[in-house]
Amino acid sequence: MPQVLHFDELPSVAGMLAKQVTRVRLPRLGSAPAPRTLPDRRAVVTSHRQDPDRLARYDRVCGYTVRDEVPASWLNVLTFPLQTALMAQPDFGFGLAGLVHVSNTMTLHRPVSVTEQLWLSAWADNLGPHRRGATFDMHGEVRVGSEVVWSGTSTYLVNGAQAPAGTTARPVVEPGDDWPTVRSQTWRLPADLGRQYAAVSGDVNPIHLHPATARLFGFKRPIVHGMWTHARAVAALAGALPAAHTVRVRFAKPVLLPTKVGFAVEQTADGHRFAVVGSDDRPRVVGVVEPAQKG
């Protein structure tokens, strides 16, 4: 049985994140980094009332139409404070600051209205070695009553970290390498887009906010949140989105702000495949959208 970390309301990310940034672990000279672990723990909010005003602001920043049926990625945003709360626990092996978001998969099992009260939870597992360190999965689940309406998984890479001996990560189903290349849209991403998205999503990770704070983590300029790019791509599909759908994305390279990126999309047998492409013609984010499997 996992331990349950129960919250009456979604915790604030900013405070937890500030603590973690000041707690960045520096490798000790002359000693190999100790293997890290993931506690068997779930963070839960049993009844969350959504804020239509905040949803509308989120919709605007991401390019979604403001409507009662919420975007799948909005539900991911709602579980994000719980993910952060898990990482803020002292026995959690990794801090949020410095994590590299590798991929995300989420499924909206049925349309969810902004008026519905939600049960939200998050937990981490699947720690395993990676050629550049270790990866783990952060899961989220949203229920209305006992019905699971949304589920999602983000895979994070911790550069240079060591997974416990003998572990292997379950491979995550990622979009393939055959992404579309013909750009049908150009998006102009302003310098403050990271701050705009931080304000509506609560993800105030400093790498997204300002050149000075991004430099602390080795980026010349702030990088846009991967989940913004994800959301913008799904918003671009607008009316073509099935009512219940799965979105799988891989974050290939960071998108430095400000910039212009291209969007390429093509129809597949049962959905869409897309790529967000930089001026060097190399993909930044690739993804697929397909109808959700009935389960």
């Binding site: 919709d59 605007r60 403001v66 409507r67």
Partner: peptide, 17 residues
């Protein structure tokens, strides 16, 4: 009021849908 954050495009789209 309640629609202060919604634009004309938002409201028309939702109404058409």
């Amino acid at each position: 009021g309640k629609y202060a954050q919604a634009s004309n495009v938002d409201m028309l789209t939702a109404t058409i849908d």
